[in-house]
């Protein structure tokens, strides 16, 4: 019966209950409210770092196919994809922060933006390595296929330079499947950040969720999970919409062009 009331409160009043252990009697979303921006900042920063780097490395690998840069990048891709982000997080923390002291060891939640940003570098990097590698691998494959397509030949027989043909024709066409990879990658980064936040003591949703699970704070766990689920669903929606923007063949129901 209590479970029924719990759900009725959620549906009717939007009342998700209060935290029982971590911050007793505080409504769960109030607990999360301050943490969501931190988590989002961390994850979006990782994504923003990984997209350009992934595109650059992927393009490089595709254009230098079967040459030295391609082989080196392929090796790194295998490494970054197979080793989980928390291993890199620990290694980076130990070497770059602990041994060499380039960056703060843990997250500094101060108003001094320079310090705050420099303390975010390592977690962002740890989270970005996997997405960089995935983007690089997918883009390499896509670009190689597009580069050998007939319309690239046509673009060159028109008289376009090799560089221009790649930029104008190959790139956008390779981006179609990329949307499918990049956007759900956000969910993946979020998963990685559960542990990485803990390692760098970042006051985000991931940290509080692992705590909530371990101390049986059910309503807080539930709220955190709902947050993650909402993000996942939203990214999947974004993927579907982005297809229509990138690929005109997918735009359905349009009457403009008949």
């Amino acid at each position: 019966m209590q479970y029924f009331y719990f759900w009725r409160n959620i549906i009717v009043d939007g009342d998700w209950g209060v935290s029982v252990k971590i911050e007793p009697s505080v409504p769960v979303f109030q607990v999360l409210r301050n943490r969501i921006p931190v988590t989002m900042a961390l994850n979006i920063a990782s994504l923003l770092v990984s997209i350009p780097l992934g595109i650059i490395t992927g393009t490089l690998a595709a254009l230098k196919k079967s040459k030295l840069p391609d082989h080196v990048l392929s090796l790194m891709v295998v490494l970054f994809i197979s080793v989980p982000s928390f291993v890199f997080a620990s290694l980076l923390q130990y070497f770059a922060a602990g041994q060499f002291g380039w960056f703060p060891v843990v997250f500094q939640n101060t108003t001094d933006m320079a310090v705050k940003i420099s303390s975010m570098v390592l977690p962002v990097l740890a989270l970005a390595l996997h997405p960089i590698a995935s983007i690089c691998r997918y883009l390499r494959g896509e670009l190689i296929e597009t580069l050998s397509s007939e319309f690239m030949l046509l673009a060159r027989t028109k008289g376009l330079s090799h560089y221009k043909a790649i930029v104008c024709h190959a790139f956008r066409n390779s981006m179609v499947p990329m949307a499918n990879v990049v956007i759900p990658m956000f969910t993946h980064i979020m998963g990685g950040s559960l542990v990485v936040e803990k390692i760098f003591s970042i006051p985000g949703v991931g940290g509080i969720m692992t705590n909530a699970v371990s101390v049986n704070d059910h309503s807080l766990t539930m709220a955190a999970l709902i947050f993650y689920s909402a993000i996942s669903l939203f990214t999947i929606l974004l993927v579907d919409i982005s297809y229509g923007i990138i690929d005109p063949r997918v735009r359905l129901g349009g009457k403009k062009n008949g």
């Binding site: 007939e150 319309f151 030949l153 956008r172 066409n173």
Partner: peptide, 15 residues
């Protein structure tokens, strides 16, 4: 100028 064999794949589908 060159005219290709297969017009189905010679045009950029997204342009």
């Amino acid at each position: 100028g060159l005219i290709f064999q297969d017009p189905l794949s010679a045009l950029n589908p997204l342009m």
